[in-house]
Design a binder for these strands. Structure first.
Lengths: 210, 210
DNA sequence: TATAGTAACCTACTTATAGTAGTTTACTAC
DNA sequence: GTAGTAAACTACTATAAGTAGGTTACTATA
């Protein structure tokens, strides 16, 4: 991601005294500036007027070079997605056993998020602001429900509350992702889905709807 | 959710010949109409002008009664979130063992999604359109990676590809949710998070970072 | 060194949509 | 039948995406 950083690009640009900068360089500057802007403000709260101001260029230049706000966001999204994917794939490839592959892949993912917190949030999670807090609240309530379930069952009796809270959120994320996946597999019964996740958490040797 | 349906409300409204409808009734009509509109078009692609048209009222009436587009969406989001929460809680309460509680809770969730597919998507997942396809593509690539991992490890050797695909998506959802949760627990190391999910999937009896 | 061609850029607009100021209409109580 | 008010309206502002059409500065060739 961003093989060249913004400082470099702008140094190169400063050479062109009267402001006529070659296309490629200008595009790189726009994309990198936009990436920062989206990370700071999210998609909706970023405006093309502001971007033009930051790049010190008029709006039609932006549109000429990157097409539209949507397209600009998609470029950034796709590039970041590719880097994330590559990093996970490499990590997995370099490990040998299933367990070490899972650990390595997970670690690669969390390291990516750590390095690009704001950007990751803006690109992959939601259009920050507006409703993220409200949705977070609903998620928290559901996770609390799961946490209570786990605690009262003594299934993880030697575990810390932090761990349980994290696992509860992870579990809710799993349900949600499975529900999204379900849109493309509508023939599956709700009972089956519920069984899948239960079985994943509490493995039994009983034959299951797999 | 929607103790009264829209048909009922509009029947009551039709009594008021010259269009002066009591506040409460009008609010109910607006909220229910908006819920349908948001479910159909998502937040961004819904406009207050269109809502006013559907309700056959001028825009200031809408603003007088529900404040703003944001607020309207939040009302609907909160109500739906509350119903979802209640249904899961009831299902969990009525079951006895941990396993049956997990199944019942999961089933309640998936039934809710089934009954309100479009609305659930619009409220809880994303502002449809724009980037949902691009994000879905990235998620799919990552899930494929996980699927391949599972298949090649023979960890689930008697499982169908559909099941494996679903589980892979669920697992990715778990990672993502844990990363979001991480924003509120930044002191935790990436390694710890990666271990948590690995351990969840492949339980060992070794002591762990819990 | 003049000038034709073009890449890069600009000013000033249109369109869409959230939100509002100020006014009018119909029902209600006396 | 008239005063008061709840409900509604017309017509506006502001912001932001996107565009039409024209201008400027570099480049190649005579």
């Amino acid at each position: 991601m961003s093989r060249e950083n913004l400082k470099n690009i702008e140094k190169q640009i400063s050479v062109y005294k009267h402001g006529k900068v070659p296309k490629e360089l200008r595009i790189a500057q726009i994309v990198l500036t936009a990436r920062t802007m989206f990370a700071q403000n999210g998609y909706t709260n970023s405006s093309m007027d502001e971007l033009a101001k930051r790049v010190r260029v008029s709006k039609p230049v932006i549109y000429e070079l990157v097409g539209s706000k949507d397209n600009l966001f998609k470029m950034i999204l796709t590039e970041a997605g590719q880097e994330l994917q590559d990093r996970i794939q490499n990590a997995v490839d370099e490990a040998s056993t299933l367990e070490s592959k899972l650990k390595a892949g997970g670690l690669a993912f969390f390291n990516f998020v750590k390095e690009h917190r704001q950007l990751w949030l803006a690109l992959f999670v939601n259009d920050q602001g507006l409703f993220s807090k409200d949705i977070a609240l609903i998620r928290k309530e559901q996770s609390d429900l799961v946490s209570n379930l786990i605690v009262s069952s003594n299934a993880f009796e030697n575990s810390s509350l932090t761990y349980i809270s994290g696992i509860a959120h992870a579990l809710n994320g799993a349900y949600e992702a499975l529900a999204i996946w379900w849109f493309d597999h509508p023939e599956i019964e709700p009972e089956t889905l519920a069984n899948w996740i239960t079985e994943l958490l509490l493995p039994t040797d009983l034959p299951l709807n797999r």
